[in-house]
Design a protein around this nucleic acid. Structure first.
Lengths: 326, 326
DNA sequence: TTGTATGCGTTATCAG
DNA sequence: CTGATAACGCATACAA
């Protein structure tokens, strides 16, 4: 069933049907005739042919580092909501934490198969920036601050600063930190710097043996908690760069009968689902993940319909969730 | 940049370039010339035009009830892995637990924008079945058993039976059950029936006040645990149809200083991430979610390239994770 | 092996 | 307001 057959059945020209579909000039009479035929036949225009003509695919490419993460799935949910409402669809590309795959996907999307790209950033290497700059379509980066494009990100620095401040004010002084690679500016650099600056404010000198770096997985929390405890007899708190890492640390503490928060206080970032169920519940930071997705998708769609709007950088707030683990 | 320009630059016909792209007859000489030009120009064929001709989009529609769920995101990860390796892309449609949206998406996908559909089923109403049957492209249902198409699902019944049996053998007799709507055959009916049959095997008569039904969210666990405890003074265990529900129940128990497993034992299904971190850790069932996604995607792609292969129903196994909560 | 010509299903242009 | 017609970029039947 194509536009010509519909036209014949309705006794009009294909062009008239096209106008009907795209709200062009059309007499009420023909409009009705076409509506009737389309209703009866259940005709649906071929989006490929439309795309071939209009260069619009109504598809948005969303590149994420992994799907089975509380925070990312929330961002994706926010994006999906907006896209659905506006008649767009989401092409989901999962890199499984392989940076190079991000570039691969960007280049794949470049073939005009999407109208725009949303990149949930972890690492933004020069290669990434080059790939993005070569893009002819609008794009937006979520979760990382960058000057090469519109971006929506979280106030990681202040969140870490205030959370560390809170821990210190609770009486802890020998605080260990389990972070992630500094290639990730948001999570690796900013959260750590917030932590360090809070220490400095309280005249606490951070010892090297208290600062650890690991992966984004639970294992890292487990192993680094072990390492921190073995080297620092006075350790009384651990701040982890993500809730997932904190969960790993908690696992180690539990297995070794170390009481939270009496022996060791612990806190994370991201307000993962388990945080409130654990006992003691986990002190953490709520970021506006879903909102990040909503804002990002909304901006991107605006940019697609109106390419002249200037890129913006939007910093979202946070909330310290003061639970029992500190 | 299109196929004609490449042809001109390489001094060949557009058809030759097309053959180069599709491994058709071509002399080595021309092959090299075309390769050179394509390499230099960075030419990428328009997938829309290809689709218009070939009717193949290399897109797979994946319909899911929600994205921020441990189990579902694992299935999606498995699907994504296979699709990537085979040069397909995933169009992700999130229904946010609205059944009607599933039908909407199925109908949207029907416009030939995808080569196949993967439906992560919750509820399969007659309307769903009709929408699926109207489909001209291959599709597969994951997580639910059905005779209308290929399906890959979990052995929910036996898992529930064995888990309940295990709980009973641990000495519990007054076991409450928090389930979900029976519209969901896999989770709502099969798990409950496994539970009931295990009771029967041990000559335990299930009292109505011990069987609850709620939503898939934590709230349901919290509220129904409260209800169970208020009506059943002898209650000594709670089996929840999902880990998420179990987490809600645990929250209620913790808040009311009810000791797990001494006062009340508790168990769930799905081996969610928190299950191992909780203390006591949660007894649960491991299902092969990622494998389910992998198998589903693999089968679908096979079916796309070879439409004649018969539909199959594949039942995946499970593993009881015996943790401390029972 | 190669090239020419045609059509996939739309939409934009233009003349009416 | 309407309709004929020419693209969009590619793959294939057919002729060579």
């Amino acid at each position: 069933m194509n536009i010509n057959q519909i036209a014949k059945l309705a006794g009009v020209s294909p062009a008239a049907v096209s106008r009907y579909l795209n709200d062009g000039y059309l007499s009420d009479e023909k409009r009705k005739a076409i509506a009737k035929v389309i209703d009866e036949t259940g005709y649906i225009p071929s989006s490929q042919a439309q795309t071939l003509r209009t260069k619009k695919t109504k598809l948005i490419g969303v590149i994420i580092p992994k799907i089975d993460s509380d925070s990312i799935s929330q961002v994706v949910a926010g994006i999906g909501e907006v896209l659905n409402n506006k008649g767009y669809k989401m092409l989901l590309a999962n890199t499984d934490n392989h940076d190079e795959k991000e570039i691969e996907f960007i280049n794949t999307f470049k073939q005009n198969i999407v109208d725009g790209i949303i990149l949930l950033g972890t690492v933004l290497t020069p290669k990434h920036k080059k790939a993005l700059k070569d893009l002819t379509m609008p794009y937006v980066v979520l979760g990382q601050q960058t000057d090469i494009s519109a971006c929506i990100y979280h106030d990681d620095y202040t969140a870490a600063y205030e959370l560390a401040d809170y821990i210190i004010n609770k009486g802890h002084k020998n605080i260990g930190y389990i972070g992630v690679t500094e290639n990730d500016i948001a999570v690796g650099v900013n959260r750590k710097q917030g932590f360090l600056d809070a220490l400095e404010k309280h005249d606490i000198k951070p010892s090297k043996s208290l600062i650890k770096t690991g992966s984004f997985y639970m294992d890292s929390g487990y192993e680094n908690a072990k390492a921190l405890l073995s080297k620092n007899k006075k350790l009384d708190a651990i701040l982890c760069a993500t809730d997932t890492i904190a969960l790993g640390a908690i696992k180690y503490l539990n297995e070794n009968n170390i009481k939270i928060p009496d022996d060791i206080a612990i806190a994370g970032f991201g307000e993962s689902k388990p945080s409130s169920i654990l006992s003691p519940s986990l002190t953490t930071v709520h970021f506006y993940y879903r909102e990040c997705g909503v804002e990002g998708a909304t901006f991107l769609l605006n940019k697609i319909t109106n390419p002249d709007i200037p890129d913006k950088a939007m910093k979202l707030g946070f909330e310290i969730i003061k639970n029992q683990s500190v």
